[in-house]
Every structure is written in structure tokens, then in C-alpha cells.
């Protein structure tokens, strides 16, 4: 399969979007959103990471198999977070110390 050529313009667009999102992260840090502080930071970070993976790492133009590999990686991360959270969220549900 021939390699997709990404133009400098495309790279520049993605770069500018990343810069804007970085500034948004800094800007959002000036507001106390309570529990949403982490959520907002993570959402912006996830969008940025996705842009890097899709465009800088060329996954956007790759085969379905490559995309499947990337999605598997994210799915496995979700698995790690999900099952770890089953512990962290449900700690203290029982009225015994440490349970």
C-alpha cells in the first residue's frame, strides 16, 4: 500500500488546533469547576491525543486492521480503568474498615 502524503498545510492545521486546545486547558484551569475539573482536562487531553494519533501518526489514512489495533489499545486502557474503578468506587460500601 502506498504511503499517504500529508501536506504541510494539513500538519499546520492540526498543529494550530493542538495549540488552541492547549490554551483552552490553561484557560479552563482558572475556573473551579468542582468535580468537572478533571473531566474537562481529560476530555481536552483525549481530543489532543486523538488528533496526534489520527493525523501525525497517519492512522486516519491507514487500513482497517491498523485502526483495529489502535482501537484495541484504547479498549484495553478502558478495561484497565474500568475494572480498577470497580475497586476504587466501591471501597467503603461495607461498614467495615478497609472494605
Amino acid at each position: 500500500m502506498s504511503e499517504h502524503i500529508v501536506t504541510k498545510k494539513q500538519y499546520a492545521h492540526v498543529f494550530v488546533i493542538l495549540l488552541i486546545l492547549t490554551l483552552t486547558t490553561s484557560w479552563a484551569a482558572y475556573f473551579d469547576l468542582g468535580k468537572l475539573n478533571v473531566v474537562v482536562a481529560l476530555v481536552i487531553a483525549t481530543i489532543k491525543a486523538s488528533l496526534v494519533v489520527l493525523f501525525f501518526m497517519h492512522v486516519y489514512w491507514q487500513t482497517k486492521l491498523t485502526k483495529l489495533v489502535v482501537v484495541s489499545g484504547v479498549a484495553w486502557l478502558a478495561l484497565l480503568l474500568w475494572l480498577t474503578l470497580t475497586d476504587i468506587v466501591s471501597r467503603g460500601w461495607l461498614p467495615f474498615p478497609g472494605k
Binding site: L83, T86, D87, I88, V89, S90, R91, G92, W93, L94, G98, K99
Partner: peptide, 14 residues
């Protein structure tokens, strides 16, 4: 993996 952690103060539900 959590079966390595039954006595680690991991939540009983987990």
C-alpha cells in the same frame, strides 16, 4: 488480575 489482591484492601465487590 484482581484475584492477586483479595487481601490487599481491595473492595469486596471488586
Amino acid at each position: 488480575w484482581g484475584h492477586h489482591m483479595f487481601v490487599s484492601s481491595q473492595s469486596v465487590y471488586a
